[in-house]
Design a binder for these strands. Structure first.
Lengths: 154, 154
DNA sequence: TAGTAAGTGAGAACCATTCCAATGTAACAA
DNA sequence: TTGTTACATTGGAATGGTTCTCACTTACTA
């Protein structure tokens, strides 16, 4: 039922964006909506093993690019050479571990204002007509701090 | 003379970072310090035609990766499939045109505070030990606004 | 100045992503 | 419901940015 809710939600999202509703798009978007693991194309393909065992990589790439074009999804690079994707629900940014590549979502009250302010300043200073932004913070995740002996595990 | 100043400055930068001073590193860094065109590896190779006609791509990649590791240079993606590089002088971020890929540097009084605040919040919320950040704003550059008939050229 | 750890360069290898052409199908209208 | 058509999917080939390999060279240190 949670599953059903997700499916209905994503179905509606696709329709709202006037995207043709194919099983592939439906299932891929549902996967992104219900997972917050910032998957790569490969991860998605694995995760869809049961539902779409024969899906082609091209389809996943095409679908994700379409979603990105429609601002349903954002692209992320964590430095491992492949692109990660994240469903764009509510405003947030990412903290990326420079050691293991782990990506976590971060937000805080007032973050949207910071974001708006950055865009406003940029418009004034550069003359660009702003359509979006991307903020990332790098560092060592708690586990890697322990692993590297920087922080004790207590 | 401007050229000499740049060369001396970069020489010092390399020494400060305890990097072995090879002609290749020296010249590549000088190129980055004196150009603000956010070059790709290909652009750099072309720009070094006179000074280092026989430099290998591997060397440029190696050198840039070393600079990135030492936080002398930052990596940028503007969506054209290749990586762009930018000498990290004073704190700034980038506005990237979604139509033509043009990248411009932006900063404003108080930007460093915004940056510090973002890092502080992130540390509190995620437990990451922060080492850096990356902020980008997307939109249409003034020229593309005109080209696409969104803004009149007056 | 000699020894050596590190850097360079040419080309091969890698692999994420895109392209292509044939096939399949969702959406819309009659 | 059916037919039409434009769009989506597929798998394999092609692309191209980046890394790897290894023989050769060189900047640093004692």
């Amino acid at each position: 039922m949670a599953s059903n809710a997700v499916m209905e939600e994503t179905l509606q999202v696709l329709k709202d964006h006037k995207l043709r509703v194919t099983p592939q798009r439906h299932i891929i978007l549902a996967y992104l909506v219900s997972h917050h693991n910032h998957p790569t194309v490969e991860t998605i393909r694995d995760g869809l093993g049961k539902e779409l065992p024969n899906i082609g990589s091209s389809t996943i790439y095409n679908t994700l690019n379409t979603f990105v074009d429609h601002h349903l999804v954002v692209e992320l690079q964590n430095g491992d050479g492949s692109t990660h994707y994240d469903y764009f629900g509510s405003p947030h940014y990412h903290a990326i571990c420079t050691n293991c590549g782990r990506i976590v979502d971060v937000t805080y009250p007032g973050f949207d204002e910071t974001e708006r302010n950055l865009e406003k300043k940029t418009a004034e200073l550069s003359g660009y007509m702003i359509s979006g932004n991307h903020m990332e913070v790098y560092g060592l995740c708690p586990e890697c701090q322990i692993k590297l002996g920087i922080k004790s595990n207590d």
